[in-house]
Simulated scan of single mutants.
Amino acid sequence: MDSKIDLLVIDDDDINIFIIKKIVEKTGYNINMVAKTNGQLAIEYLSSLSENGERFPQLVLIDINMPVLNGWEFLEAYDTLGVQDRVDMYMLSSSVYENDIEKAKTYATVKGFISKPLSINKLIELFDSLSQ
């Protein structure tokens, strides 16, 4: 297993980002966490990694409701990047709408839907699944 896991969190809520960062620290994993506050910033970040031949995050947590580019729009833009790296993406949302959960299933890049708040056990489960 890779000694370090690269995690990208796309969420416009600074408090959520802070909480996720604290949970990440408690998992005991060696995590390089990058946070972007909207989908557009995340696309620019991933484009830059791609152009520079840098390693992509193995895990991406995506909020749905954000300004500029929301979670769904991020996924549409991501698909146009033509990235071949295996990236595990999860929608992370406070939305309880069944149609959001169903919509997440229509994206090949999305592995699942996680309701906020993110728990330490769920995060450890995600990290563990990366090493398989």
Rank of each mutant, 00 (worst) to 15 (best):
V83P: 00
N32M: 13
L41M: 07
I20A: 10
K4Q: 08
Y45C: 03
D88C: 13
E54A: 12
L126V: 03
N38V: 11
G39A: 05
A104L: 06
T109F: 01
M89N: 02
I114Q: 04
L41G: 09
I20Q: 03
I20L: 15
T27Q: 08
M91R: 03
Q84T: 15
D11W: 12
S50D: 11
E98M: 10
N16L: 02
V87S: 06
S131H: 14
E25A: 06
L41D: 09
L8G: 05
D14V: 13
A104Q: 00
L123Y: 13
N52G: 06
D63T: 10
W72S: 04
G39C: 05
I43S: 00
K22N: 14
Y97M: 13
T106E: 14
Q40I: 03
E102Q: 10
G53V: 09
F127E: 05
F18L: 15
G28T: 03
M66E: 02
M91I: 15
G71Y: 04
K111F: 07
V87N: 08
G71M: 08
V83S: 02
K103T: 09
G112V: 07
L7I: 05
D63A: 10
M1T: 14
L49R: 14
Y45G: 02
I120V: 15
V68K: 08
A108T: 12
G53Q: 03
L49T: 10
N99R: 10
Y45S: 00
T106L: 15
L59W: 07
W72G: 07
A108S: 14
E51W: 05
N70G: 00
D63H: 09
D79E: 14
S119E: 10
D14Q: 07
S131Q: 11
